[in-house]
Design a protein around this nucleic acid. Structure first.
Lengths: 334, 334
DNA sequence: GATCGACTCTAGAACGTTCTAGTCTGCGCG
DNA sequence: CGCGCAGACTAGAACGTTCTAGAGTCGATC
């Protein structure tokens, strides 16, 4: 409809208000150097014409974009929590966020490419499978912060949860409830699986239960959990810690179908505190990542890099938190 | 680290390759007007310098941005499915997407504002609570397409699911299974609730079951479903259609806790096909919205508006689809 | 051998801002 | 009365592209 008529620019406002373009710019930015009366009048005209600053032109000229590029995966529920936190944190330090999504048919590489063209000053990547070499290539151009995944490269900053600690919290919780025969369903070769498995082993050893440790192969999906459950049923432990929540629900389902009571016969702890895990139906005890801490660290780290401030450790590791819900309970003997 | 050294520009590539800026521009765009040998050489230099086009400058000059602004809500699982579809559809017609998220602490208004400054050529809004007057104000400036919500204003395009039809599909399914005493848990004053309720009533009437129609107040959350279930338990019907999936899971939970078997004693149909509804634990029969159709329609509509093509109906209504899972079964008599 | 057309290439303006370096006015001060 | 200074304002360059108009070269056509 009105796609024909050009949007008003600084020049339009300037002629209408009878002042120079530069002065309008000053007023719009709230910069000093304009009289109170003129300021008022210019603002009025701008409002009347429906003037909207053109961020592209603005950023082009001023060199800086104060823009942070964020790559997230639409499929990953946890990424949405992270987004929420990031917006908050970015707002506080006066930076904007520009998002680029990874979808089943849109690769991480495409997502990153788009952001680079937008002249972001730093990139924040949620998880992802991008190879370290590729990441390093990007990090050679602008600061890169990887969230929720580890990257072994000196140019890439990392903010992640202390996964071994998370597993230990799970085991500690179960031991405190009286459990000894605690199994672990792992995530195979997925990011974080090794760390979570290691934490489980460490905790079992610390409690003197190394002999009772038992690791069953799992994965990221429900079906992986279901398969693991089938394997456990031959000789059920009294408690299980699972690689992630989705896997845990698959496991729960099979256990219950087989007549086991949760948590009466067996306790289950997930990992991630995915949104569905708090559904009354699932009500899963799990390990929650500290979204606030992760996002603020990611932002401050990115900004520090941009502004050339010295940053001490390349990797920030954040403690997770146990969330107790209905799938864990005291050991019932007899 | 290297945030100091400027990114290479067209001019850098030009001097390095010993040609004019304009020619480099031609080569980078793949436009005709450059010799094969030069083209090769320029590309090589560009690659070597790590040249990245600056989309801001590019768009500034060329007037058009070929950019569609998308506002989505991080909290809404269905929005992620929509995003996936939108990226696909936008890619096919050669437009880019720029995302702006609504979070618990970032309002729709802020999200829209950001997109306007980025000079999108059209806006696509997922749901949202923005007032019609505000929407109209934006639509006066650039095309606006509302997805999954109705808007009564001649300047705002609408793409939505045929909600009455969805409810009817649910009822038809239940009737085909032999059910007569079918109740409906509604969504109160929420978007779409009235339509879904109406569809339920129409379907009941069409099957000659108007006398058995029974509507119980519900809502969007689990707790609303739980409350509705408590109310239904006084005199349980043999089947229920529910406003949305989350509400349905809350209802399911209470029904099962009360000892009812689903679907043996009572069948339940949700609405939305939210991702969690296909979890084995929930396995909810539901009404799915046709993501592909919705997103392609939204994109083509936006593009048609941008390019000034005539568009016939302002509102595109898309048929939903019944997804049968484990919470519905044949009526068991006796 | 001039004219044309096709092709390759270039100069320079434009896009909408911000920034630098001013100009102009009025006023206080010596 | 002249000088300096502060405050309000402006002209014009700059940012990195794309676009328009045209210049140069070459070979073919009249």
């Amino acid at each position: 409809m009105q796609s024909g008529d050009r949007r008003p620019t600084l020049a339009d406002v300037a002629t209408e208000a009878g002042v120079s373009v530069a002065l309008v710019s000053i007023v719009m930015r709230g910069a000093p150097g304009a009289g109170a009366a003129t300021r008022e009048r210019v603002l009025e005209v701008a409002r009347r014409l429906g003037y909207q600053p053109d961020s592209r032109a603005r950023l082009l000229r001023s060199g800086r974009s104060r823009l942070l590029g964020v790559v997230f995966d639409v499929r990953h529920p946890f990424h949405h929590d992270l987004l929420t936190g990031l917006y908050d944190a970015a707002g506080e330090v006066g930076y904007e966020l520009t998002l680029s999504a990874v979808t089943p048919r849109r690769e991480e590489h495409t997502a990153v490419e788009g952001l680079l063209q937008d002249r972001c000053e730093a990139l924040i990547l949620f998880g992802g499978r991008m190879r370290t070499a590729d990441l390093a290539g990007i990090a050679a151009r602008l600061p890169v912060v990887a969230l929720t995944r580890g990257v072994r490269h000196r140019d890439v900053d990392v903010v992640r949860t202390d996964d071994p600690l998370g597993s230990q919290q799970a085991v500690d919780h179960l031991v405190a409830l009286g459990h000894h025969r605690i199994a672990h369903v792992d995530g195979g070769t997925l990011h974080g699986s090794a760390e979570r498995r290691q934490g489980y082993h460490d905790a079992m050893r610390r409690h003197g239960l190394a002999d009772l440790a038992r690791v069953v192969p799992g994965g990221a999906g429900e079906e992986d959990g279901a398969r693991a459950a089938a394997q456990l049923l031959a000789d059920p432990p009294t408690a299980v810690t699972v690689f992630n929540d989705l896997c845990a629900t698959g496991l729960l389902d099979v256990l219950r179908r087989d007549g086991l009571d949760v948590p009466g016969d067996i306790s289950v702890v997930g990992y991630d505190d995915s949104s569905f895990s708090r559904l009354a139906h699932i009500d899963l005890t799990t390990i929650a990542q500290d979204v606030d801490a992760m996002t603020t660290h990611a932002i401050t780290r990115a900004v520090d890099r941009i502004e050339g401030n010295p940053v001490s450790p390349r990797e920030v590791v954040i403690a997770p938190r146990l969330v107790v819900r209905g799938t864990t309970g005291p050991l019932v003997t007899g």
